[in-house]
Every structure is written in C-alpha cells, then in structure tokens.
Amino acid sequence: MLASTLPHVSNTNHHAEFKLSITKALADQLSAALKKLTPAPLTAEVIDVLPKGPGVYQLYLDGQPVYVGKASKSLPTRLRKHYRKLSGRPITGEVSFVCLYLEEDLEASAPEKMLLGKYEGKYERADGEPAQKLPWNNNGFGNNDPGRRRDTSEVAANHFDALYPVNLDLTIDWLTAGVRPVGKVLTELKDNLPYNLRFEQPKNSTRARHDYKLNVEVPSHPMTVRAALQLVVGALPEGWQGTALPGYLILYYENTSYNSAQCWWRRSGSEVIETPGPALFAPATDIVEEPDEDDEGSRDNGNEEIET
C-alpha cells in the first residue's frame, strides 16, 4: 500500500494555520500614517482652517501622545470642543494634534479602537515600542457633565477633572456690562465659559423663576470667573449656593458640602462668603470613556433658556 512506502515524517514544519488580521493591518497603517504627520498647535486659528469630515486624531502634551479620539461627522467640531475645554484648565505644557480624514465607508469609531489597541499592546507594534496606556483615554477627559445625581460623588483621584480642575481665576472680558437680570447673566456665562455651568431650572422651581428676575450690576472691566460667581450669588437672596466642583460649576438653592469641591459661595447678609472645599477624592480607578456626539454646536449643559 502507498502508506507503507512513504518515509516517516518527524516534524510538522510543512503545514501551519494562516490567520488574516485585517484589523492589525489597518492599525499598522493608521499608526504609520499618523507618524508621518507633524503635530500642529491645538489653537482656534489652526482648527478653523481644517475641512469638515469624519476622521481620527491624536493629541500630544509636550510632544508625548496623551489621547486618541474620533469624529464621526466633523474633525474641526470635535477638536474645537477639546480646545475649549483645555482653555479653562491649568495645562502648563503645549497641546498639539494630528488628524486623519477617513473614507466615507470606514466608520470612525473602528479606527479609533484600532489605534488604542495598537498603543495598549492588543496588536504587536511594528516600531518595537512598548505598549502604553494613553493617559487621557483612561481618565475621563472626553466625558460630559455627569448630571445632578453625581454632584455629591467623590471624583476619582486620577480623573482628568481632579488632575486639571476648572480654572476659577480665568479672566473673562466678554460679560455684558450694565444692570441686568440674574437669569440673563447666568445664560451668558453658561454659553461662553470653557466649562459647564449648571443651575436650577426655572421650569422646575418657582423660586428660580422669581429670583432669576432680580437685577445684578455687571461692571465694565474684566473679571475672573470666581468674581463673576460671587457677583451672581450676591445678587440672589440668602440660601443660594454656587459651587466649584473639579470639572464644572453649579448653582442651586441649597446648603450642601461637596467632598470633591474646590470651594463654594453663599451669601451672608450683604457679604458673599467663599468657603474652601474639602477637595477629597476617591481612589484611582479605570474610567470608561463615554461615547460622544460631535454635532456642530452641541454642548451638554443640562440647562434651558431663561425667560426674564
């Protein structure tokens, strides 16, 4: 028989399984394409000349990669949102970026995951560099306002907001001067601050509907965000509290101590008292990046337009 005439085969090098990894190939190509680009400063001037379109991008802090993201509709819109957020934080280094526009039939979220997988060691890195977690992809940098129910929760010590809390001493020169209703001033602050200001909604509060019609005199000279909040609280009756949490500001009729707060303001007689917050943080943990909408002009602020 044929089998008896064949020599004995002592090794198996003559056969193997072939696994085609389209994902790894795309990750390699995306990574290589990004490396060919020269990072540009993340500024309004640079972002404004970018064409619209979906794509992926990478942020750098002092030349080191810190974040990979995607825009399913418009790269400039997404990058502008990051620029606005970072302009209100104590970032001491230079933030720059590179971006790749994608073909219409390639969903932006898939390349983003491929690039993250490349950095985190899911796919072997052709450049021989060790796997690494991009810090801002794992600390809540891209997340939105968590909502009223989370205000009292302690922020994780490694959260972006704990590392880079909102800058209360940021100077603003755009607040309209003159005697104006508190509600109008709140709306202008909310629309223009580089971080969220959430406040009690008039549709849910008779007190807010009444008190937001009270007038406040806004000076014509520039002021800090801290001074602006003190001005608003001082124009409202006693019982209102403005609070600076690590990542945003809130204003409610309450007397509440927030563990992770930077500070809060309450009126006492004719004075506004600023009380330092405990600035307590929860243990560091992995923070899940939330999916984000990048529609033009979208902001998650939890407020409505105030009629005064």
Rank of each mutant, 00 (worst) to 15 (best):
1 M>R: 11
7 P>A: 00
7 P>Q: 01
8 H>C: 03
10 S>N: 06
13 N>A: 00
15 H>T: 12
17 E>N: 04
18 F>L: 14
24 K>E: 15
24 K>D: 12
30 L>V: 05
34 L>Y: 06
37 L>C: 14
41 P>G: 06
47 I>G: 05
50 L>A: 09
52 K>V: 06
55 G>H: 05
58 Q>I: 02
61 L>A: 12
63 G>H: 03
64 Q>V: 06
64 Q>M: 01
65 P>F: 03
67 Y>N: 05
70 K>E: 14
72 S>D: 02
72 S>Y: 00
72 S>W: 00
76 P>L: 02
82 H>S: 02
85 K>A: 09
92 T>W: 02
92 T>L: 07
95 V>M: 10
96 S>P: 09
98 V>A: 13
99 C>T: 13
100 L>R: 09
101 Y>F: 13
103 E>I: 06
103 E>V: 05
103 E>L: 10
108 A>Y: 02
112 E>L: 06
125 R>I: 01
125 R>S: 08
126 A>S: 04
126 A>R: 01
129 E>H: 12
131 A>K: 08
137 N>I: 10
137 N>D: 11
145 D>R: 13
160 F>R: 07
175 L>F: 06
176 T>D: 14
181 P>Y: 05
181 P>H: 06
182 V>Q: 02
186 L>P: 08
191 D>M: 02
192 N>P: 03
195 Y>A: 08
199 F>T: 02
199 F>D: 04
200 E>I: 00
200 E>M: 04
201 Q>W: 00
201 Q>K: 04
207 R>F: 10
207 R>I: 07
209 R>D: 10
223 M>T: 13
223 M>Q: 15
223 M>E: 12
226 R>M: 12
226 R>F: 13
231 L>S: 08
235 A>S: 11
239 G>V: 14
244 A>C: 15
247 G>H: 10
248 Y>W: 15
249 L>Y: 14
250 I>A: 10
251 L>I: 12
251 L>E: 07
254 E>M: 12
263 C>F: 10
264 W>N: 10
266 R>F: 01
282 A>M: 09
289 E>W: 02
290 E>A: 14
293 E>P: 03
295 D>P: 04
296 E>S: 15
297 G>V: 11
299 R>Q: 09
302 G>A: 14
303 N>I: 10
308 T>L: 04
